[in-house]
Nucleic acid binder design. Structure first.
Lengths: 213, 213
DNA sequence: CTCCTAATTAACTGGTTAGTTAATTATAGA
DNA sequence: TCTATAATTAACTAACCAGTTAATTAGGAG
C-alpha cells in the first residue's frame, strides 16, 4: 500500500538525481559539471538538487559514497566465495576488472579524485580505499603466512592492479583510435577484452608472488 | 649584449606564465584553474595570458607540450646511456620515477588528462604517449628477441609501471596522513622513497619477464 | 632625440554558475 | 473533505569567468 505509483516520489527523485550525477561527474569532472545541465539531464527542477543534497559538494559526496560502496560490496561479496588466498586474489582482480569495465565511471571518478589527493571528498575516499586495501593486504599476508606467496609490499601491488586496470579502462577509446591510424607494429591491446587483461595481470602477479628460493 | 636586464622581456613573461600555469593546472585541473588567479599568481596582467597564448586552451596546450616534451627528452637521454634491454628497462623505470617525484605536476596532469581520454589536448597527448610507449615497447621486444625476456604484452606492462608510479606519487600526502592516524598493521609505504619503490617495481617486473621454461 | 613597435595595463562585457526564495501543488492522514 | 506538510517550480541574484578593447608605456633602431 505504501508503494503506489506516485507523481511525487522523494526516493525516486533522489535516485534519479544521483544516477544522472554519476554520469555527468564522470564525464565532465567535478568542476565542469553544471547543475543546470544536471537538472536538464534528469528532467527535474534544479532547485530539487539543492533541496535534497544541500549543495554541489553534497551531491558529489553522495555520488562518490554510492559508487565506492557499490564496488566495495561487490568485491566483499565475491571474496566470500573463496578461501584459498590465490583464489581470493584472482577474485579481487577479476571482480574489480569486471566492475570497472561495466561501470566505466568508476575509473574516471577514481583517477580524477586520486590525482588531486582526494581534493573534494578526502575523508570518504580515504576510508573507502582503506577498507578495500585492508581486504587486499589481508589476502597477501594470509597467503604469505600459509606459504603460498612470498613476501610483498601490498601497497605497491594494490596500486599496480588498480593503476593498470583503471588506465586500461579509461584509455580504451584512445587505444581504439590509435589502432586504426597507427602502424600495426605497435600493439595497443585495442581488441583485448577486460577478462583477457585481468587474466594476464593475474598470471604475472602470480609470478611476482612466487616464493624466492 | 642581447641579454640585458629587461623590465619588459617577452620570453621571461611567457616562461613565467607557463611555469605558474603548470602549478595551477596540476593543482586545480583545467576547468577549476582561473585565469584571474593565474595572473595574480605570476604577478602579471591577465591580458598578457591572452596576448601570448590566445586563450585558456592555448595556454594549457603549451603547458602540456612542455611537460610531455620534458619527460620524453629526459627518458630518451637516459636511455642512450645503456644498450642491454634489462638496463634500458631499469633506466626507464627509474628515470620516470625520479622525474615524477621531483615534478609531481606530471602525474597529476597525466592522470587528469588520461581519465578524460585526453579531453582537452587529445592529439598531443596521444602523440607523446605513443612515442614514450614506442620506446618502451621496443625495449621489451628487443629483450625478447635477444632472449633476455619472455613474451609480453607491452601495453599492459607500460600501464603497470606508469599506473603504479603515478598513483604512488599523487597519493603520497594521503598515505602519509594515513600512517599517522592508522593502526600500524596496515603498511601504506608512507616512508618509502621513490627509488625504493622503483627498485621494488623493477625487481618484480624482472620476475614477470623471466622466460617460462 | 624621435619614431615605431612590442609589451603592458585597467576597465569592461556577456555569459555562466552555484545557490536562494517565495509561491504553488500534490498527497497522506485525520 | 479538510489540513499540514512534503515535493516541486519559476524567477531571481550575486559572484565569477574567459575573453576584449583601447589606451599607455618602455625600449631599440635610425
Amino acid at each position: 500500500m505504501s508503494k503506489k505509483i506516485h507523481k511525487r516520489d522523494a526516493e525516486a527523485s533522489k535516485a534519479l538525481i544521483i544516477s544522472s550525477a554519476i554520469q555527468l561527474f564522470s564525464q565532465k569532472g567535478y568542476a565542469s559539471a553544471s547543475m543546470d545541465e544536471l537538472a536538464k539531464l534528469c528532467g527535474l527542477n534544479k532547485a530539487m538538487v539543492f533541496y535534497y543534497f544541500k549543495n554541489k559538494k553534497g551531491l558529489y559526496e553522495a555520488v562518490m559514497a554510492q559508487v565506492l560502496e557499490e564496488i566495495q560490496q561487490t568485491i566483499i561479496e565475491e571474496n566470500k566465495k573463496y578461501t584459498k588466498p590465490i583464489e581470493e586474489l584472482e577474485s579481487f582482480i577479476h571482480t574489480y576488472a569486471q566492475f570497472a569495465c561495466s561501470h566505466p565511471y568508476l575509473p574516471a571518478l577514481l583517477l580524477k579524485e586520486l590525482s588531486d589527493s582526494g581534493a573534494v571528498v578526502p575523508e570518504m575516499l580515504f576510508s573507502s580505499m582503506r577498507q578495500l586495501f585492508a581486504l587486499f593486504s589481508d589476502i597477501l599476508k594470509r597467503g604469505e603466512s600459509k606459504g603460498c606467496f612470498g613476501a610483498s609490499k601490498p601497497m605497491v601491488f594494490y596500486f599496480m592492479i588498480l593503476g593498470t586496470l583503471n588506465l586500461i579502462v579509461t584509455t580504451k577509446p584512445l587505444r581504439i583510435e590509435a589502432s586504426r591510424k597507427e602502424d600495426i607494429s605497435l600493439d595497443t591491446c585495442a581488441k583485448c577484452d577486460i577478462d583477457e587483461i585481468a587474466d594476464y595481470l593475474m598470471k604475472n602477479i602470480k609470478k611476482m608472488l612466487k616464493e624466492n628460493k
